[in-house]
Simulated scan of single mutants.
Amino acid sequence: MKIEVLISTMNEKSIDCYKRFNLETDALIINQTDHNSYEEININDQKIRMISTDTRGLGLSRNLAILNSKADILVFADDDEVFEEGYKDKILSEFKAYPDADFVIFKTIIYQNGEEIIKVKKDSNLKFYKSLKYGSVHFAFKKEAIRRNNISISTYFGAGTDNGSGEDSLFIRDCFKKGLRLRTSTKLIAKIYNDNSTWFTGYNDKFFFDKGKLSKALFPRAYRLYIEYFLRNHRGKISDIKNARKLMIKGAKEFGGENEK
């Protein structure tokens, strides 16, 4: 099995940007900038490719990377991510140990606002109700499983849109809906330095409005239940639960109308 890291970034001046990711595998860099071009270089046994594009949006970037990928196992990466020594062998060993797995959510350490965030804490088969907390920096998956089931990244949510985050949750939701087999792994593959987040600006009105849209997108029929679940899980960070609920319901209705059946 061959691995390729799919990196989404912006305004890179040179393909030499690959050096900061500590790569041990092939990589495809999608560079959203002001022109369209293609470059590739070979470093030892690694092929590094870069597609520069004047399109915008994280979803577009991820989809372009999947469409142009050339490996069996694809690994999403952001431009603030640094891979661990030995990540290649860790990923290969996990897929070999669990050959029925289509998608593995690996441990990463996220440094954000002075905190160290670790979301993957055990090795197990993943259940849907536990899956929506994981972002794409954890994702490694078999290309064939994704393309065979015509799964893609939402271009309505995520960086580069006006609708907040959530494209990763929708991606996982679609994988479950298509019957893919997902699991978590405590093998550490990367560290992410996320202090310059481009989408999270605090628990303000827009945050809750956008989360309402996402609730409706994720659960067209049961979005109100998900809104209550979300509010309960974040109650320690929300100063006005009643207003947050109102904003989320308003966002859900704008996204999908008022039909709750």
Rank of each mutant, 00 (worst) to 15 (best):
T161K: 07
T161V: 05
D162E: 15
N163Y: 13
G164S: 08
S165R: 00
S165L: 05
G166F: 06
E167T: 09
S169W: 07
S169D: 14
S169P: 10
L170V: 05
L170R: 04
F171P: 00
F171A: 00
F171L: 05
R173T: 15
R173Q: 15
D174E: 14
C175K: 04
K178L: 12
R183W: 04
T184V: 01
S185E: 01
S185H: 01
S185K: 06
T186K: 02
K187T: 09
K187I: 09
L188N: 02
L188I: 08
I189D: 02
N194Q: 01
D195E: 00
F200T: 04
F200I: 03
T201Y: 13
T201W: 12
T201N: 15
D205H: 06
K206V: 11
F207A: 08
F208K: 01
F208L: 09
D210C: 07
D210E: 14
K211H: 13
K211T: 00
K211Y: 08
G212L: 09
K213Q: 15
L214Q: 06
L214C: 02
L214S: 03
S215W: 07
K216V: 10
L218D: 13
L218T: 11
L218A: 12
P220V: 09
R221L: 15
R221M: 14
A222L: 13
A222E: 15
Y223C: 12
Y223P: 12
I227H: 07
I227N: 05
E228T: 03
F230M: 03
F230D: 00
L231Q: 01
L231D: 00
L231C: 08
R232H: 05
R232L: 03
R232M: 06
N233V: 04
H234C: 10
R235K: 13
R235W: 04
G236K: 13
G236T: 11
G236W: 02
K237C: 09
I238P: 04
